[in-house]
Design a protein around this nucleic acid. Structure first.
Lengths: 154, 154
DNA sequence: TCTGAAACGCACTGCCC
DNA sequence: GGGCAGTGCGTTTCAGA
C-alpha cells in the first residue's frame, strides 16, 4: 500500500470533519494554494471513500430527545441465527442511535436517544423486549455529555 | 412554547442529517415549492440552533482507526474536583470519541477509536491511566458496528 | 409565507505551466 | 501536480402577492 495521503489531504480531512461548509476558496487561502488543487483533492478523497458522507448535526435538546442511555444486552443463546435476527431488528428501531456487537460478557451495547423516561418505558416494552432471545438487559442513563463527537483522530 | 416546526421543517431536518449536500433546488422539487422558502427555512433552522453544524463523516477503516472499544471507568472518590478534572483531561485525549458521565455504578463510559491493540496499550498507559483518581477500568472491544449513526429520530 | 426574478459567489471544467 | 480563466449552478437577496 503506497502512501495515499499527504499533509494537505490530512488537513482537509480534519477540517471537513469539523466543518463541512468550509469552501475550497477558504482552504486555498489557509494553505497558500489556488482553488483547483483543493477542489480536486477533496473530490479524490470522496471518490476513494475517505469521506463517506456529509451530514447535518442536529440539537438533541431542541428536538426533545435530550435523554441518552446505554443499554447492555446479553443473549440467551449465541447461535448465528439469533445474532443475525437481533441485528436486523435493532436496525429498524429508530431510538437506537448506535449499536455494537461486543466481545466479552455483554453481547451488545446500544446508545438510545429519547425524550422522557416514559418514552424509554415505551421503547423497552414495545420494541426492545419484543426481540427474541434476550436474557439480560441493563440500562444506565447519561447524566452529562462530556464529549460527543463524530470526529476521528488520526 | 409555541409550535416551532411544521412538516416541511421536519422533512428538511431529517433530510439534512442524512445528506447535508442536498440542494435547496432539490428540496423545492420534492416539496413542490420554490427555492427561496426552502432556503429561508434552512437558515432559520440554523439560526435557531436546530442545526448545530455540518460535518464530513470519514471512513475509520481507511484511516487506520478501525478498532473501537468501550471503556467503563469508575472513580475512587466522587468529589466535584475529581470529576471536573476527569472531564477536563478526557476532552484533551484525541482517541476518545465519546464520553458520558453516567448514573449508576460505573461513572464514565468512553468510546475509543484506535488502529491496533498496541495503540490501545499506549493509550491506556500514557493517557488514560495518568488521570488521577481512577479506580476501575473495564474495557470491551467492538466486534461489529451494527448501527453507528449521527442521526436522531424525532 | 410563498413566488419569481435578478445578482453574486462558488463549484466545476479545460487549458496551460 | 498546481495555477489561471471561463462557464454554469446554487445560493442569496429582494420585489410583489
Amino acid at each position: 500500500m503506497e502512501k495515499e495521503l499527504d499533509e494537505v489531504d490530512i488537513f482537509l480531512l480534519k477540517s471537513l470533519q469539523a466543518d463541512a461548509k468550509t469552501t475550497a476558496k477558504e482552504f486555498a487561502a489557509q494553505l497558500n494554494m489556488s482553488v483547483s488543487p483543493i477542489y480536486e483533492r477533496i473530490k479524490r478523497l470522496e471518490q476513494k471513500g475517505y469521506i463517506k458522507k456529509y451530514v447535518a448535526i442536529l440539537d438533541k435538546t431542541k428536538l426533545n430527545r435530550s435523554i441518552t442511555c446505554i443499554c447492555q444486552v446479553s443473549m440467551r443463546q449465541h447461535s448465528e441465527a439469533f445474532i443475525d435476527n437481533f441485528e436486523k431488528e435493532i436496525r429498524k428501531i429508530e431510538e437506537v442511535q448506535e449499536c455494537f456487537h461486543m466481545a466479552g460478557e455483554v453481547d451488545f451495547f446500544l446508545k438510545i436517544n429519547i425524550g422522557s423516561l416514559e418514552d424509554y418505558h415505551y421503547f423497552v416494552r414495545t420494541k426492545l423486549s419484543r426481540i427474541e432471545n434476550i436474557s439480560v438487559l441493563n440500562t444506565t442513563f447519561v447524566l452529562k455529555d462530556i464529549k460527543n463527537g463524530t470526529e476521528i483522530s488520526f
